[in-house]
Structures are given as structure tokens and as C-alpha cells.
Design a protein around this nucleic acid. Structure first.
Length: 387
RNA sequence: GCGAUUGUAGUUCAAUGGUAGAAUGCGCGGUUGUGGUCCGUGUGACGAGGGUUCGAUUCCCUCCUUUCGCUCCA
């Protein structure tokens, strides 16, 4: 049986859960409120004002028995319009959950994936810096080396207006510019000639100081100043655009620096309006973080082998679990039980047989070394706890 | 969605116009209180449908799927 294209079974979700917990705990440290919202919404609401966005054309559509036109959420941001109503500002909320996009699957891209969002409704530049600090804290805890690319939509707009590019063509030009880190420059230049905008390419080669002449750079300058409070390194990328059209100020895109990392974006965000209120937010891609994060796996697991001494085995297992150590009992032949332990990476095994019960000493075996130790019944849990 | 590409045991790979073989995994045994080595044995696959043919896993068509690019994006 196959899963649907772009959907998958996650057979070992332990690492995933640990990453989720780390992200969630940091969100909470910054006083974001946890929320959950419906996966299904009215199609009209999902589309929102962003009907021009390509992403909106990627929504999964469905109908219920009442012939309502519905859709699966393709992100969380639009749902903030409802949540942010009547809230004391700034309203800070986080949400972790699956979103759905009916789009082609390539590489590390799925049609169901889990986003971890933190947003501030009613935000200024200082809040944006705080969001960056939060990104940095999370990725550091996940032991991921990263670069934060950033830009400001206002700067892009100003540059394009300066070059007398019409509002209609602006979005097309921005899309071309956004490909700069991907396609060869020649190709982009050709495409830009259609809009008479090839000059922008030369602009983007200029050093950062060149952009100081633009009014919108003031905001970038101010933002950099605030961010320096947190010692966050930002990589100013004047051509960074981001596809979602609702962004109206700062935009961020986080990439992995790891050699074995992935080329896809691992977190992205920016500033936008919610019900006319200036807001900012970030979204992590849990599925991608899972590929590159290094988390310590809880690997102290114990297998009790009951050699027809089930009563004692259950008793000991219970004591070990009370120490908060994962433990299970095998009732079969010892050979089988040891193979089982190998197969599921259970590192310690305790034999519970007639002899042990008589002597009140139990054999504790380290699977990696094969060494066995006799341990007094009283000290057993303590010994295991110390391992 | 468009263009290219892919599809055989759970996994990784073979062969073939006369319905398939290995490695590994899994099960059982050798070892009824000792595994990660070895030996034996078992299990298990032609993506789905249609066409050509005496006969199709093989050739053709459609759909699905895989991978890559475009578009877009976590």
C-alpha cells in the first residue's frame, strides 16, 4: 500500500518529538501563547486577500455533505485574522501543526508538513529583533549552524520605483530577482530585459553602503542596530524577496551552513499586516529540521529477561520504570531476547531466573561490551540509574 | 500543472516474449540460561488497468508512483 504522493509515514518520531519539545519550550520562554486552529476552513477564508499568490492556488480543496466549499490550511498566518480579534496588543501566539499544499514534491518538500510558527501581532522593529534572537536560540539548541538572510520589502520597492518600473511589473521583477542565488546571472538578465529592469542586477553587486542613499535603508539600519543588542549576525541580501505577497517590511530566510545540511530553507518569516495591524512572525519547517538537528537520544533502555520468573520480573521492571528509565520484559528464550535487544538497540539486559532469586543477586549485562555483573537486588535500580 | 525520468520480495539489486534469482531483513532450528560470527531451513515481488500475442514482468497505450528541472515554498 502506497501513501499518497507527498505524504509519508513517520515510523520513528522520537527525534521529531524532541525537536518539537525544544522549539515549544523556547517559544514559551518568550511568552508566546500556545494555540491550535482547525485544519479545515472555508475556501474563501483560506484564500483571503492573497488570491494572486501562487501558494493559494496550491490549496487542497474539498466539499462536505452540506456542499460547503472548504480547504485544508496551507499555512497558519491567515487564521490570525480570527485569533487576533479583540486582543490586547502585542498579541503573541505560537502554533505547531501540519499544513497542506497541493504542489509538486521534490527533494525535502512534502505536501503535508509541520510548521512551527511564532507571531507577534502589533509588532515593531524591536519585536522583529526578538524573533531573530528566538530563531538563533532554537537553532543553537538544535546544534544547527545557520545563516539568516534578511532584507526589507520597502527597499526592494523603492529601488524598483526608482528605476521607473510599473507596479504591475514589480512583482514579476521581484520574482526574477529572488532567483539570484539559484540561476545563472545571464539567464536572469535576459528575463529582466523584458521589463527593462536589467539594471537592478548591477545594483545588487554594490556593497551594502551603496544602499544607504535609499530612504528605506533607514529602517534596515535601525533594525541592524537593534539586532546588535542580541549579537545576531545578519546577512543583508538586497535581492531577497520571498514569494508570499503579504510581506510589507523585513523579510528573513534561514539556511543551514552544515556540509551535510540541506539547501532548502529551514525557517522563514517577515513582517506583514493582520487586520491592519503591523505584525511579524517566523515559521520553522519541522520536517527539515529533523534532517539536520542533532539531539541527544534517550538511549538508556533496559530489557528484563524472565526465565519463567514472571512475578519477580514484573516487580523489577516496575522499580526500574519508577526511576524514569524505559524498560520492558521478554518472556521467551534468552537467545531470542538478546537478539531482540540488539535489534532495537536496548543497551542493558537483566536476567531474572531461579538462581538469581535464590541468591538475591541479578545479572546485569551490557550489550555493547558483553560484560555481566552480579548486583544485589536492593541496589539494582540504583546501579541502572548510574549507568 | 508542464518537461524529462523511474517502477521486480520489507530493503538494495538481477534475468527473461514461455509467469522470476540473489543479497539483506524477517520467521524457525542448530544452541530447552546468553546476542551482535557461522550453518541449515522457511517466508516473501513483477505499481494498476487495457491492448498486441498461442502466451506479456518484458512490446504498445492510459493512469498512478519515483527522481530532477520550471513555478512556488518550511
Amino acid at each position: 500500500m502506497e501513501t499518497v504522493k507527498g505524504f509519508r509515514d513517520i515510523e520513528d518520531s522520537q527525534k521529531r518529538n524532541q525537536i518539537r519539545n525544544i522549539i515549544e519550550s523556547v517559544f514559551q520562554l518568550y511568552n508566546f501563547q500556545a494555540v491550535e486552529t482547525p485544519i479545515i476552513e472555508y475556501e474563501e477564508f483560506v484564500k483571503g486577500n492573497n488570491t494572486n499568490d501562487e501558494a493559494v492556488s496550491d490549496i487542497f480543496k474539498l466539499k462536505d455533505k452540506g456542499e460547503r466549499n472548504l480547504a485544508l490550511r496551507y499555512e497558519f498566518t491567515f487564521q490570525l485574522k480570527r485569533l487576533a480579534n479583540n486582543k490586547k496588543l502585542p498579541y503573541k501566539r505560537y502554533q505547531i501543526g501540519p499544513v497542506f499544499r497541493d504542489e509538486p514534491v521534490t527533494g525535502n518538500r512534502w505536501r503535508q508538513f509541520t510548521q512551527c510558527d511564532a507571531d507577534i501581532i502589533g509588532a515593531n522593529l524591536k519585536d522583529e529583533a526578538e524573533i531573530l534572537n528566538l530563531i538563533s536560540e532554537i537553532l543553537t539548541k538544535l546544534k544547527i549552524k545557520f545563516t539568516i538572510n534578511f532584507n526589507n520589502r520597502k527597499l526592494l520597492n523603492e529601488i524598483l520605483e526608482d528605476l521607473k518600473i510599473s507596479d504591475k511589473e514589480k512583482n514579476q521583477v521581484i520574482k526574477e530577482i529572488d532567483k539570484l542565488d539559484k540561476l545563472p546571472e545571464k539567464e536572469i538578465k535576459q528575463n529582466l530585459q523584458k521589463y527593462n529592469a536589467e539594471k537592478v542586477l548591477d545594483l545588487f553587486k554594490k556593497p551594502e553602503s551603496y544602499f544607504e542613499k535609499y530612504k528605506a535603508y533607514e529602517e534596515i539600519k535601525e533594525f541592524k542596530k537593534i539586532s546588535s543588542l542580541y549579537k545576531i549576525k545578519l546577512n543583508f541580501q538586497p535581492f531577497l524577496a520571498r514569494g508570499l505577497s503579504y510581506y510589507n517590511g523585513s523579510i528573513f530566510e534561514v539556511k543551514s551552513d552544515e556540509k551535510e545540511g540541506i539547501k532548502e530553507t529551514i525557517a522563514a518569516g517577515g513582517s506583514y499586516l493582520v487586520n491592519g495591524i503591523q505584525s511579524t512572525g517566523i515559521s520553522f519547517g519541522l520536517d527539515r529540521l529533523e534532517l539536520i538537528a542533532k539531539v541527544e537520544e534517550q538511549d538508556k533502555k533496559v530489557l528484563i529477561i524472565s526465565l519463567s520468573q514472571d512475578k519477580k520480573a514484573v516487580e523489577i521492571a516496575d522499580k526500574i520504570r519508577k526511576q524514569n528509565i524505559s524498560c520492558e520484559i521478554a518472556y521467551g528464550k534468552p537467545g531470542k531476547a538478546l537478539e531482540y535487544a540488539n535489534s532495537y538497540q536496548i543497551k542493558y539486559v537483566v536476567f531474572v531466573g531461579e538462581e538469581e532469586i535464590k541468591k538475591k543477586k541479578f545479572k546485569l549485562k551490557d550489550m555493547a561490551s558483553g560484560k555481566e555483573k552480579l548486583i544485589n537486588e536492593k541496589d539494582l535500580e540504583k546501579e541502572i540509574n548510574k549507568l
